[in-house]
Design a protein around this nucleic acid. Sequence first.
DNA 1: CCATTCAGTGAACATGCGTACACCGAAACT
DNA 2: AGTTTCGGTGTACGCATGTTCACTGAATGG
Lengths: 210, 210
Amino acid sequence: MTETRAEQKERTRRAILDAALDLTAESGLASLSLRSVAKEVGVVPTAFYRHFDSIDALGLALVEEAFVSLRAMLSAVRQPEAIESLVGIVDSSVRIVTEHVRAQPAHFAFLIRERVAGTPDVRAAIRHEIDLCEHELATDLARLPQGQALSTPDLRALSGLIVTLMVGAAEDLLAAAPSREAAVAEVIRTRLRMVLIGAVNWRSAGAPTA
Amino acid sequence: MTETRAEQKERTRRAILDAALDLTAESGLASLSLRSVAKEVGVVPTAFYRHFDSIDALGLALVEEAFVSLRAMLSAVRQPEAIESLVGIVDSSVRIVTEHVRAQPAHFAFLIRERVAGTPDVRAAIRHEIDLCEHELATDLARLPQGQALSTPDLRALSGLIVTLMVGAAEDLLAAAPSREAAVAEVIRTRLRMVLIGAVNWRSAGAPTA
DNA sequence: CCATTCAGTGAACATGCGTACACCGAAACT
DNA sequence: AGTTTCGGTGTACGCATGTTCACTGAATGG
């Protein structure tokens, strides 16, 4: 029973993080208040300081935690599952993204919101992390047989486009009622396929006539 | 000189709106405070109530004002300027969007931020307005000769994709230093062309092989 | 069994918030 | 010239905020 004490502390810490994630969803990290978190957790405001140094430290912890979910999703998408065709890649990618967003909606909602609404430092941190995603995607695309025809700047434009599209996809998934998830996923697949068709036909058949 | 009084009032009102737009850029509409606005304007807090009924009314006015800029941009983009080729449409559209975003950066930054970070009612209002853009774009695309081959749901997917892409483009423009504007615009043109090439080749040459 | 650790408590603080009210003084109207 | 209108002022209120400090009491370790 040497772990009971630490366990209880960890449980309270988790409750604080979960409550903060919840409250943040309504009005943003900037207007998250220590006291509202404490009330939600069912603890006196000052108890908060047994777990975090300040309200800013809480924000930092939330960012870090959301990054874990983001990186987990990215590495899952990068596992080549059905690499034989672009359609296979599209289908598995959209499915994996959908699953991850559904598994941690609060984390992705947090990242999507604070990416544009956070304080400058939070915003910069999230943008940097998403830039990394974009860069990794660009190198993956470069390795694809169909990616050989694209110049480096065009590859960057494409990967940025796909990331923007997938961020929008996550937004749509989060905004949609669970019953509409399949329909939303189908629209996302269509969009991703259109983009890839555009990339495949780039500077070959499509470019001059378009 | 019968207008001096009203003029002065209008000038203060504008100063309040401008200050609010400025302060909002840093921490969002949700945490905009009446007192910080008053301080910025150089007026005592209670003077605020000579111009707006409440802090919420200010928020509403900001939303309406930003919508004016959004609608102006949309109707400018829709004026068919170089309709003869898709490339011409892409170039003129990106140029017009760039000009409008540069002309009213605060308005577009406001819309982009509050679309995901605003209170539910503000968020809903902005999403609705952007949905209208998406819908108008879909009908425009349907009228294009190249749009005839696409089914209605595919047209919706395409217009949503383009709107998402252009919102991302506006984000990039706002985040970029003015000196990098040309480079950012070039990337946006590339992305938009790729998407349109994908749409043109949809379910004809491109779809089966992709 | 006794001493210690420590998550949670409760009071207190300075500050910032939105809003109400009575008031002022100059511009505007009669 | 006299009166009214009204944008801006100053004070005051009740409430919420982040953080501090001394304290408690049960789980922990010797």
